[in-house]
Amino acid sequence: MGNILTIAKRELKAYFGTPIAYVFLAIFVALTGVFTFFIGDFLGRGVADLQPFFQYHPWLYLMLVPAISMRLWAEERKSGTIELLMTLPVTTTEVVIGKWLAGWVFLGLALVLTFPIWITVNVLGDPDNGVIAASYVGSFMVAGAFLAIGACMSALTRNQVIAFVLAAVVCFLFVMGGSGMVLDAAAGVLPDVVVQAIGNMSAMVHFDNIARGTLDVSDLTYFVSLTVFWLFANVLTIELKKAD
């Protein structure tokens, strides 16, 4: 546990070692604003909730999480520090979790910085703050799961651009899987069970459930499993091709 925190702390410091972290935070907050007010028509709807704010989060993460995750392993490979890190008395699992945790905390911070919108909606009306809190939790879970995907993709290559693209593609599959477009197309050719399975694999479906205000165990289990699965894949990737 101590090692996980040491690694997470180092990674987190590394994020803030360059201006990129601040740029990222600014872009994230700005984009959530753009989505909420212009695309989600927050003011025009006349409803005191944050649904227009939250519904685009998975789409936002699709681009922004890979930007956070791409350097996690690719940079270690490129600079050779992976050799230093992996010959210290740490296990691969500790490093994988530590790195992921740093990214997750960073994304959590980005999410916290969107608090003005919560205040705004409370000033403008009388929203259900329970739903909003649940949505924040859900959004944070989506970020964590996507980050695990991104970290695993970063472990595959020493090139950060490739890591970014791979992560975006895989995350895209997990977002799109639940969209009407995919499910309708699948319904035409596949049996119901399979279509349902595809829908259940989608982060979007589970996030929408949470964002409606029902923090259901099955939805939380989904995100936890997704995260654990990709972290496990990350450990395997590093174990198998540490030195490549």
């Binding site: 180092r10 590394a14 600079s79 050779g80 520090t81 050799e83 010959t87």
Partner: peptide, 21 residues
């Protein structure tokens, strides 16, 4: 590995380091 690495000091080829630290 962990016990072995505790007794080991290792300087990798090219002496890599975290550039921002």
């Amino acid at each position: 590995a962990r016990a072995a690495k505790q007794h080991l000091g290792y300087l990798p080829e090219g002496a890599p380091g975290y550039s921002e630290m």
